[in-house]
């Protein structure tokens, strides 16, 4: 079943005009913002496909920036997000590009805050539902619909076992988990989607695991 519950039919509450070009775009922007974990000073936004064609008309630019400011899909400040970003000291750069084979509604977001940087590539696949396909160069798959932990770590034996053991101990069920690595014993990234909110102490324990370099908590609802 592609649609799993009644609120994927009635909902989301959102600022118009398009569930895929507006609500989905907010969610991808917000995913990037929470991945960075702070208000960025620089935001580079590159639209592809249908997004590149119609981003002005659908307010996709306002929507992505609203997400980068951590607004929800139904936040009326989305309409003024460009101005709000400027006032908050976020430098925005927009561009369009071509990406053969990518979903027609794709956006790439690069955020910077001091020394911290992150890159997210996501697609809006309809009705406000999104798929995050790439995080910091790692091929992943995440919908942002569940509370999500993004863990950057070294590719070493036992790291995944350490993460899953901590979730189990905290009584938090893992719905989905995906790992990608740059190369054997090189950098790796694991995305964990949980069936319930991920408590602060658990996030702290995951952060303290050996070989784990950075942890972001993404909670879009």
């Amino acid at each position: 079943m592609r649609f799993k519950n009644v609120f994927s039919i009635i909902g989301p509450a959102m600022i118009g005009p398009s569930s895929s070009h507006t609500a989905g775009a907010v969610r991808i922007g917000r995913f990037a913002r929470q991945l960075l974990g702070a208000e960025p000073t620089e935001a580079d936004i590159c639209f592809y496909g249908s997004f590149a064609e119609t981003f002005k008309g659908h307010g996709t630019d306002l929507a992505v920036v609203g997400g980068i400011l951590d607004y929800r899909t139904d936040d009326e400040r989305i309409r003024n997000s460009l101005q709000n970003a400027e006032e908050a000291g976020v430098n925005l750069h927009f561009s369009t590009g071509t990406a053969p084979g990518a979903h027609p509604n794709t956006v790439k977001i690069n955020l910077t805050s001091g020394e911290e940087r992150c890159e997210v590539i996501g697609a809006s696949i309809g009705g406000g539902t999104v798929v995050i396909r790439n995080i910091n160069g790692f091929e992943v798959k995440s919908s942002g619909e569940l509370p999500t932990l993004v863990v950057a770590h070294a590719d070493r034996q036992g790291v995944l076992a350490g993460i899953t053991a901590l979730f189990s101990k905290a009584d938090v069920n893992i719905g989905y988990i995906i790992t990608d690595r740059k190369g054997r014993t090189g950098e790796a990234l694991t995305v964990v989607e949980a069936d319930s909110a991920i408590p602060e102490p658990l996030i702290g324990e995951v952060t303290s695991l050996p070989y784990v370099s950075r942890v972001s908590y993404i909670h879009l609802t």
Binding site: I9, S19, T22, G126
Partner: peptide, 13 residues
């Protein structure tokens, strides 16, 4: 919806 107001997708915007 078209003027970027708040609505609920039922089933879409």
């Amino acid at each position: 919806n078209a003027s970027m107001g708040r609505i609920v997708a039922t089933p879409t915007a």
